[in-house]
């Protein structure tokens, strides 16, 4: 059965396992190699799943997995809104 992990970038569990085997064995490098977590949802659903696969494949505990840096904005925002004065620091 094919399990889709990242819907935005169309990546399956097999894609992720294969990349880990190639040596992309932390979230930051997995992200860049596969573009995983770089879709419009910014990895909200796929990164936690990928974390679990990483633990399973590498034998690391969740505490040893380095969290990827979260990068604003938290959801897609049109430039017109960002350009306006309404944006505050927490957007």
């Amino acid at each position: 059965m094919t399990v889709v992990i990242c819907r935005c970038e169309d990546l399956t569990e097999d894609d992720i396992v294969e990349a880990i085997e190639k040596g992309y064995d932390e979230l930051e490098t997995l992200k860049r190699h596969l573009r995983m977590g770089m879709g419009p949802c910014q990895g909200k659903s796929c990164i936690p799943l990928a974390e679990r696969i990483l633990c399973r494949e590498t034998g690391k505990s969740p505490d040893d997995i380095r969290e990827p840096t979260s990068r604003p904005p938290n959801k897609p925002v049109p430039f017109a809104l960002l350009a306006s004065e309404e944006v505050d620091d927490h957007e």
């Binding site: 770089m38 879709g39 419009p40 910014q42 990068r71 604003p72 904005p73 897609p76 925002v77 049109p78 430039f79 017109a80 960002l82 350009a83």
Partner: peptide, 8 residues
């Protein structure tokens, strides 16, 4: 204007 930024 209407295009979305997703990450910075």
């Amino acid at each position: 204007s209407g295009v979305n930024m997703i990450r910075q």
